[in-house]
Design a protein around this nucleic acid. Structure first.
Lengths: 346, 346
DNA sequence: GTTAGCACTCTCACTTGGAGAGTGCTAAAA
DNA sequence: TTTTAGCACTCTCCAAGTGAGAGTGCTAAC
């Protein structure tokens, strides 16, 4: 009796979750019987609900109101009751179509991912740019922009492109800049950090040294922290949910979104977590995320094993459709991985 | 009596605006006398307020409550009563310091501008990237990224940098790409649209033609519409104002911010408006902006006369500190112009 | 032209009193 | 032993009512 639930109790828990997600109102025993035409009475449901409440899967906002799922209730639902849902086929096709229509540009794919997830889940979406494990420099270019400013663009192994503006001590003509870039590029492809450092130390040209030192700084920086743009979308979706009717709550959640630190935390966690190769669900800020009290987050990695990778995710109220969200996140991350792999191999 | 106000009436109007901006509550005659130690009585103030209400500069939420300024009241205040305010010197210095500390990178300046404005005005800020009037191509580079993908980076006269990903029909080695880029670059600096088109038509190399046609498409596109990133900041500031306590209102405003179309409209209006060389104030959606009913927008252009330009702005509730916001927007836009001019000339 | 005094109006916060929804418990039925 | 009908009980929600307080407009005196 302590550890396990009967089949009927699980069934009722699933119904409560489903009903509450839909209506956002405490679910009563009578309503459940009526809505799903159960072949046992409301009194029976009440008894089962009492058991579920004892197990802390359900709770009552106040004595003698309907039940709502607790955090543990959602977790149980996600892990054992939900089953492996998939997006409807026509939706899958529609999304694929959108991706193929986009220019074959990683940036476009990322913002498209954010937009698709926001639409599909009616939540707020997050997508990080690519992240390289051990960056190697393939090729670089220097372009004079304005005065002493020079734009440095470089391509890493795996295809990630970075850019940065340098301000040199004096104005240097484009011809000379091109020569410097050539000198570095001639050293071959896939230059790793040690060999770059060696090149820098041996460089006789001042400009060359400056360029190399900036690249090194950038690469080393990005190996520890996941930097880069975060694509966001669907903020208004989540704010229209009834749980954010209280402006104080809404504001707190919004601040979360504006502040990069929490998001970085969240996303990098997924990027580095090697064992969970599927979709990760964080319910009601499980772990140490106090800021996410009433929210749930669904995350997944994308990318090929050997090359670049990033994360896509969705944030919504704890009362969200996990089945829909998980399937959407899984589909988009798989699609991204697939497209990336394709664009490398071809 | 019809068209003009006495000095005292103007004075009282200014006080009402000031007090209402501070407290967000209807201003009563008694409170005004008490707060500002006026040397006439509340009854006198009441009489003057009645006149101001007749002129539609003030309104009452209901019979026998305090007064709040109308849209016209704010406008009168901004145009005739406010006076030329400036940010405190120490604040100016602090901001300057932040800008000088940033890497000399236009992108950094833009996001810094957004952040500074949001902080200074406690509103939501908007900053557009640069916009070129008549683009001329200075220099370009081609970098193989991944498979058939090639990154095209090019610098326009004035220093704006654009990039774009091409997908070629077949994989081309970096060596060959560099040769193509060189061929185009050797044609000299400041290549305008007609000369580019000529080059494209005469090009014998397939890759070269493809590259040129994409550049042409991009340039022609950007001459009509102001494209580019919009930097945003301080969303939470404006949402914490009491006028957005109603979640429906808050959501409407938020949607405004997420949707680019209105913002583009707003900003491009300022960019193209040649005559207003100062700061532009739009109160309560004056003109045709229904979406901005309860909001005010303060905008200014930045940039040098001959080169690139963009716009910075702030959105807040109609009840905002116009004096502080206008001075902040003016300061930041001037500073940006100054920095840009400097970085060109040096 | 200004001000004290006062009646009047309107909001806001609080209380009160059902009505209704839903439960837990008990005892009977299956 | 399990299920169900019945019922008393609890708690919220809504609507109406009430009084305090704030602020006004008006009038008459200064």
């Amino acid at each position: 009796m302590k550890g396990t639930l009967t089949e009927r109790q699980k069934f009722i828990l699933a119904l409560v979750v489903r009903e509450y997600v839909e209506t956002a109102e405490p679910v009563s025993s009578g309503r459940l019987v009526e809505q799903y035409r159960l072949d046992f009475s409301s009194a029976t449901v009440r008894n089962e609900m009492a058991v579920l409440t004892e197990h802390a899967y359900l709770q009552q906002p106040y004595t003698s109101a309907g039940r709502i799922p607790t955090r543990e209730g959602y977790r149980f639902f996600v892990q054992q009751l939900m089953g492996p849902a998939e997006l409807p086929t026509h939706v899958q096709q529609m999304i694929r179509h959108q991706f193929y229509q986009a220019r074959h540009d990683v940036d476009d794919w990322l913002s498209l991912s954010a937009s698709v997830l926001a639409n599909q889940t009616q939540g707020a979406s997050l997508v990080t740019a690519l992240h390289i494990d051990k960056a190697k420099l393939n090729h670089l270019a220097l372009l004079a922009t304005r005065g002493r400013q020079v734009l440095l663009v470089y391509v890493l192994e795996g295809g990630e492109v970075r850019q940065q503006t340098l301000v040199l001590d004096e104005q240097i003509p484009q011809r000379r800049l091109s020569a410097v870039a050539d000198a570095i590029n001639r050293q071959g492809e896939a230059k790793d950090v040690p060999s770059l450092r060696l090149m820098m130390e041996e460089a006789e040209d001042e400009v060359e040294r400056q360029v190399l030192s900036m690249i090194l700084a950038e690469i080393e920086d990005s190996e520890t922290i996941s930097t880069g743009t975060i694509y966001r979308d669907g903020l208004t979706n989540v704010l229209s949910e009834p749980e954010f009717a209280d402006p104080a709550v809404a504001q707190k959640t919004l601040r979360l979104f504006e502040d990069r630190s929490v998001l970085d935390d969240l996303l990098s966690k997924t990027i580095f977590e090697r064992d969970s190769n599927g979709v990760q669900v964080i319910i009601g800020g499980e772990g140490n995320w106090e800021e996410l009290q009433n929210c749930s987050v669904i995350l997944a990695r994308y990318g090929t094993e050997t090359h670049a990778m990033g994360a896509v995710g969705v944030i919504g109220p704890m009362r969200m459709s996990y089945s829909r969200s998980v399937s959407a996140v899984r589909f988009v991350s798989d699609l991204m991985s697939e497209l990336l792999a394709e664009s490398i191999s071809s």
